[in-house]
């Protein structure tokens, strides 16, 4: 087992502000909960919270995420931006592209993005990203980007109900040698920093350009549950705000911003 080493991570940080302040706890209920507490106590914009174990990792709609100790990455990035909440969806795409870039560079595996930001390898989910935002009177108080990446989890750490749909980088690499989580964390933070700077200076287009390279769903026929009803269609693309464009049976183009996709 290799350990999370906060000094190693810090040495690898090259960005201007994402990850400049790091908080590490061996065990937390959720890194996003800790990040929220730290935000209330004045933690700085760009701080990252990292844990070795997470007891209440969560996904969309209150789903839980199996979070064993000593093998994966559980991390939350705290942002206190001045932009409008309308464009905050960009953060979820920046996180996806940062994770996908890092996986490609450090492992050679071929990540694919399932809209909006699940990372799959060989059609199995290795990473989930859930972002929380707090707004008051249409102004952002803070954003917390929660990232879970299954790095060195072994096959038997996944319950039988998810064994066919979830995986880790180690399993998909087919190797025995563990992947360095410290390097992976530094890399994700560095990429996030770079894409975030681009987003602030030129908008979402450079991020979307990279996103398209990993987007593995073009032309796929899907079902998506939106507001309790199921919409069927063929994926026609991603719009400039990152929303999913779906061509329905009656040849209409639907813009989807929320929903659970089934293939």
């Amino acid at each position: 087992m290799e350990f999370i080493d906060i000094f190693e991570i810090k040495k690898g940080i090259k960005g201007t502000f994402i990850g400049k302040n790091l908080y590490y706890e061996e065990k937390v209920d959720s890194t996003s909960n800790l990040a929220r507490d730290l935000a209330a106590k004045g933690a700085k914009n760009g701080s990252a919270v990292i844990a070795d174990c997470q007891e209440k990792g969560r996904g969309r709609n209150g789903k839980t995420w199996s979070s064993p100790c000593g093998c994966n990455i559980y991390m939350s990035i705290l942002l206190k931006p001045k932009f409008s909440p309308e464009i905050a969806q960009g953060m979820t795409l920046i996180a996806a592209v940062s994770v996908a870039d890092s996986i490609l560079e450090l492992t050679g595996l071929a990540p694919k993005i399932k809209w909006p930001n699940d990372i799959l390898i060989n059609s199995r989910k290795v990473s989930g990203i859930l972002t929380e935002m707090s707004t008051r009177n249409k102004l952002i108080d803070h954003i917390i980007v929660g990232i879970i990446l299954n790095v060195n989890a072994e096959r038997d750490s996944f319950g039988p109900e998810i064994r066919d749909i979830a995986s880790s980088l180690l399993i998909e690499s087919g190797k025995e040698e563990h992947i360095d989580r410290n390097r992976m964390i530094s890399s994700i933070l560095n990429k996030f920093d770079r894409y975030y700077e681009m987003f602030l200076s030129t908008g979402l287009s450079p991020v979307l350009e990279q996103y398209q390279k990993y987007f593995g769903m073009m032309g796929k026929e899907i079902e998506i549950k939106v507001n309790g009803k199921t919409v069927k269609g063929i994926i026609a693309g991603i719009d400039p705000m990152g929303a999913l464009l779906l061509k329905t049976a009656d040849n209409q183009l639907e813009r989807v911003v929320s929903g659970e996709i089934n293939f």
Binding site: A88, Q89, T131, E132, M133, R136, D141, N227, S258
Partner: peptide, 28 residues
């Protein structure tokens, strides 16, 4: 309000009484 897996928690910016809720749970 959720969009693209961003869960946006909306807070009130003043002490107030909730008079009515104008939309249904899960509504777009």
């Amino acid at each position: 309000i959720e969009a693209m897996k961003i869960m946006n928690e909306i807070e009130v910016d003043m002490k107030c009484r909730i008079v009515s809720i104008l939309v249904e749970n899960g509504q777009l």
